[in-house]
Amino acid sequence: MAGIVRLWKKFPSKYGKAGIIVLVLALAVVMPWITSKYNVRILTLAMAWAIAALSLNLILGYTGQASLAHGALMGIGAYAFGIFAERVGLNFWLALPIACLVTAFIGLLIGLPSLRTKGPYFAIVTLCFNVIVYKVFENWQWLSGGIQGQVVPQPSFLQQRWARYYFVLGCLLLTLIVMHFIVKSLLGLTFMSIRSNENLAEATGINTFRNKLLSFVVSCFFVGLAGSMLAIENGQLDPTITIHLNSFYILIFLLIGGAATLSGPLVGAIGLYWLLDYMKKIGIKGIEEFRYLFFGLILIIVIIYMPRGLVGGLKQLWEWMKSRLKRRKIGEVPE
């Protein structure tokens, strides 16, 4: 144990982090060859959900506004892509950005009235928007495509499962890079100052409403992307994609993974999506039938013992271990 720690210390943590990233990336790239076709599909879907969790991370994790409309917005993105690609007949490369822009525009319309409210009020107002969107999709058969839903054409280069996997992986990486630059920029700092104290930010001359709106609209753009990815992988849409439960799932993936980190949403979405799927096919009747009970218990336990999510919890654990080791070295008695 001590040997590993010494090795780790010789290794500057910067390289360590880079090493982990390269390792994960390499694993992601070789995945379609080492795992089954079914798992490739589950991973593709999980990555799409991860994009959604990352987008919520921008508005909730970094800007501090808990949006519960992201499920509806994801559905809007998915439907926008499906409708533009199938009914309008647009080229794939045109339909995809248009779908994201449509989602961002609807996000703007939702954000204008709802961002005037704060905290729990904002959460409930956005939840109301989600219910409205779902009800509209459920009842407006022309929009939703009725009982047969909306068919989503898969372009010729995305016919294969592995092709879709790499495409979604690429979009996920793109999202990660954009998020990384936003967070590290002045804009990111502005968002975070609103999160920590909105009144103070306002006092220092930041237009908090405009910044919150910007963060929300950018977030909507990416959740639209996530929706389009789900649409492409499934090839088919129905109104349930806009249901508010999906907002809850995105929120759960983000908070259990760890908000305000870039790795948290990835860990949460991929880990939990896989877990839910695994519990379904495990082949033990009790676990299959009661999987949501176990899932609920996991949520409660993780949120009580790791309030900053799995990634936050691991970081905390690591810091704690490091400080203990340091102290022992100096000769202090650990508490």
Partner: peptide, 16 residues
């Protein structure tokens, strides 16, 4: 009763 898991189930049946 939702399409996404139904599709996943079908693909697992066929592939695995």
């Amino acid at each position: 009763a939702t399409p996404e898991p139904a599709l996943s189930n079908a693909q697992r049946f066929i592939l695995e």
